[in-house]
């Protein structure tokens, strides 16, 4: 084909993508990296940056809000990711040929995934209020639960966030798992059936290992998504000024746009980037090691 003209055409075709990429992505990434080492009086614009060394990074780890944000975010990841993965695998397993009308039924599970997260967060806030639906339902079973403060208690307020994280993630995970499960050969199940393996044993010894590659991928995808959690926490903590349930992104947002400490906010954001990059790297390396084929 016509080589020389190709080069020109190629760069012309790439130009729109490259311009946005360089101006609105690469430049801001670089600037925020630099800014994280400065004390930044933002009203003075770019000139307001003063070299601050590692002081921002030292300060954020002394900051109680940010330490609890890190702690909470890791807690959210540790608790919600396994639950999401396990539930979605079970549901996908049942939805795949174990039920009538699988395609219609899976639509139900999909709705929370596409519904506006702000809407869902405000809804959960209403449900978890002291006089909300959750406490009303719990009061049927036990009198001890009357007046549980789901939204304001130091520890309890993390539960609505986690419920929302799991509830909204399942639709996506189920769709991916259903695809993966369809690729598991039915011969394996038939052989197991002949050997007299129970359905539970088949699930543990055939289904689970056969989709391990997908599981590994989804674990990483979910971990990264949960590390970046913002909407649910930000909306729910609006009515709880103590922000006991705060997350890394919520702190970045508040440091930047409530306290107007831009250098510090960039440092906090870079901690998030390092965490995400670490787990992306784990994915690249680990995929080969821990996955059965």
């Amino acid at each position: 084909m016509r080589r020389k003209q190709d080069t020109l055409t190629a760069w012309l075709f790439l130009a729109p993508a490259l311009i946005i990429f360089l101006v609105l992505i690469v430049y801001p990434i670089g600037l925020s990296g630099y800014a994280s080492f400065t004390k930044w009086k933002y009203t003075a614009g770019l000139k307001g940056m003063k070299w601050y060394g590692f002081q921002n990074y030292i300060n954020i780890f002394k900051d109680i809000n940010f330490s609890s944000a890190i702690e909470n975010t890791f807690l959210y990841v540790l608790i919600t990711v396994p639950i999401s993965i396990l539930l979605s695998l079970i549901f996908a397993y049942l939805l795949n040929n174990k039920v009538f009308l699988p395609k219609t039924l899976r639509l139900f599970y999909f709705i929370p995934y596409i519904a506006n997260a702000v809407a869902i967060a405000t809804l959960f806030q209403s449900w978890f209020r002291t006089d909300g639906l959750i406490n009303n339902i719990l009061s049927i079973f036990s009198n001890d639960t009357v007046g549980l403060k789901w939204m304001t208690d130091k520890n309890l307020c993390k539960i609505p966030v986690m419920v929302m994280l799991v509830w909204t993630s399942l639709g996506y995970l189920i769709i991916i798992y259903m695809g993966a499960l369809q690729n598991v050969s039915s011969d394996l199940y038939e052989a197991a059936e002949i050997d007299g393996a129970s359905k539970t044993k088949q699930f543990i010894h055939i289904t689970f290992p056969m989709v391990s590659q997908t599981t590994f991928y989804l674990i990483i995808v979910r971990m990264i998504a949960v590390f970046k959690v913002f909407v649910s926490v930000n909306v729910m903590s609006m009515k709880n000024p103590a922000r006991y349930n705060t997350s890394i992104m919520v702190e970045v947002y508040n440091t930047a746009f409530s306290k107007m400490q831009f250098g510090k906010a960039c440092a906090e954001a870079w901690i998030l980037v390092l965490i995400v990059l670490f787990f992306t790297a784990v994915q690249f390396v680990g995929q080969k090691k821990w996955v059965h084929y």
Partner: peptide, 30 residues
């Protein structure tokens, strides 16, 4: 299309995909 620098541009795009866009919010704001 075949052109010089394709590999570089392509891997740059991939690298940036891994960096969460939230980190750019402060510079974008300014």
């Amino acid at each position: 299309l075949q052109f010089k620098g394709k590999g570089i541009v392509f891997s740059m795009f991939i690298c940036v995909m891994m960096i969460p866009s939230q980190v750019t919010v402060v510079p974008r704001f300014l």
